[in-house]
């Protein structure tokens, strides 16, 4: 019994991002393609940031999840172009980020509002944060600092 491509997408949607476990790898937009080539399942993955240390863990997590579902032959392909963009974050992913306390990326280059209290009075602390994909901001209303998912 060979799993359908749709089934595989569902499985991958249950694999959490290792750094931000509230969103899945599919939410993150880094799974670019799933296809069968004969009896081999090919999964195409694109890196978020070229030096992101989570990349190798992500590949390992994908492989482990698929093996747990009985897939035996797996080929992970890396795709660099088109380069990953935060436009590929799913709406579900964006909502979950905000619930988790991380402001989702905005084309304007800064968070729309504080993920804690919803105030729009926010200021940037640093262009970089705890992982390559985040920056540090602070709410000047509730005074809480928060992560902002960088828009690239």
């Amino acid at each position: 019994m060979v799993a359908s491509v749709e089934q595989v997408w569902d499985w991958l949607d249950a694999v959490p991002d290792p750094e931000i476990p509230v969103i899945s790898l599919v939410d993150l937009g880094i799974i670019r393609n799933v296809a069968w080539a004969g009896d081999t399942l090919q999964v195409t993955v694109t890196p978020t940031y070229s030096g992101c240390p989570a990349t190798s863990i992500i590949n390992l997590d994908i492989e482990t999840a698929l093996r747990d579902h009985g897939v035996e032959k797996i080929e992970l392909k890396r795709q660099l172009s088109p380069a990953w963009t935060t436009d590929w974050l799913s709406d579900k992913g964006r909502e979950k980020l905000e619930e988790y306390g991380i402001a989702p990326p905005q084309p304007a280059g800064g968070p729309e509002r504080c993920p804690h209290c919803g105030s729009t009075a926010v200021e940037k602390l640093s262009q970089f944060g705890s992982t390559p994909c985040k920056a540090q901001w602070r709410c000047t209303e509730c005074l809480e600092p928060f992560d902002y998912f960088k828009c690239i």
């Binding site: 940031y49 240390p53 970089f128 705890s130």
Partner: peptide, 11 residues
């Protein structure tokens, strides 16, 4: 943190 992240991108 910014410097470490920059270094990470470069590597």
């Amino acid at each position: 943190i910014a410097l470490a992240n920059t270094a990470l991108d470069l590597i």
